[in-house]
Amino acid sequence: PGTDHELPGLDPIDPNCTNPALQDTRTRPQRLLDALIDTLHLAARTGHLPLNGGLKPHLLITTTEADIHTNRTQGNAGGIAFLPYTGPSNLALWDTELCDADITTLILGNGHTILNAGRTQRLFTPTQRKLLIARDKGCTFPHCTRPASDCEAHHITPWQDGGETNTNNGTLTCPLHHHLIHQGLWTVRLHNGTALYTPTNTQDPHQKDQYNPYHHNLPHPSTEP
């Protein structure tokens, strides 16, 4: 910070890639901030951080079933999330975090009386993550060089929309490209275990499927049956 020197690794896209739709368009300050956030995420996954109030680091998001439904149908104009330190915010801002998280369902009665507290449900188990790492090797976004250790598990069909938690509905993405998917700029599907990404027509008028050859050095997978 404070200089124009570009730190290595801030741009995850393979420098040999010339496709303009895949270039990292973040400003340098945005890249530095994202790198700091990525570092915090890595630290939180080590299991060695101290407890705070009896809990390991958590992001507590409170919302209602009605707001979740509104978020699904209206996107950025959707439901409201309540957080301990920031107050009400747009639920759509937390789509990425909710894609790969521990979720505890609480059923409230009148006021704030808790009628039932369901068990925390881990969306992708450590065993499933190992399988995703063995298959994907790293971020599956086209020409992204991020290794698996920097990645999150993305539900291709969102869990809240009935998507199953298994390797056939999951793929590894780094935080940057995970956000791009949840922003609606790219869609992803699996073909014979390979993640194929389709850009919006504003990104690419031809909306050609793209994949990541970086981690596997493979030719483009055939999409024919």
Rank of each mutant, 00 (worst) to 15 (best):
T46V: 08
D67H: 15
I68G: 07
Y214A: 04
L218I: 15
L180E: 04
L106E: 15
F124P: 09
L132M: 14
H220K: 12
N169Y: 12
L131M: 13
G78Y: 06
N192S: 13
W94E: 09
N169T: 06
T120S: 15
P50E: 06
Q121K: 15
T104N: 11
G87L: 11
R28H: 14
G184D: 06
P213N: 03
Q183P: 00
P199I: 02
T173Q: 12
D11Q: 02
L185P: 00
D209T: 02
P88T: 15
K56C: 06
D24R: 02
T18D: 10
D204V: 01
H143S: 07
E152T: 11
N71W: 08
N76L: 14
C151E: 04
L59Q: 12
P175H: 06
L33R: 12
F82T: 12
G87T: 11
P88S: 13
D136E: 05
Q128H: 14
T73P: 00
T127A: 15
H220W: 01
L49R: 11
T73Q: 11
T157D: 11
D150Y: 09
I61A: 09
G162M: 05
P20Y: 00
C144T: 03
P8T: 07
A117C: 15
T167W: 12
E152Q: 15
N168K: 13
T104Q: 15
D38P: 05
K56D: 10
N217R: 14
T96G: 12
K208F: 00
C144G: 03
P126W: 15
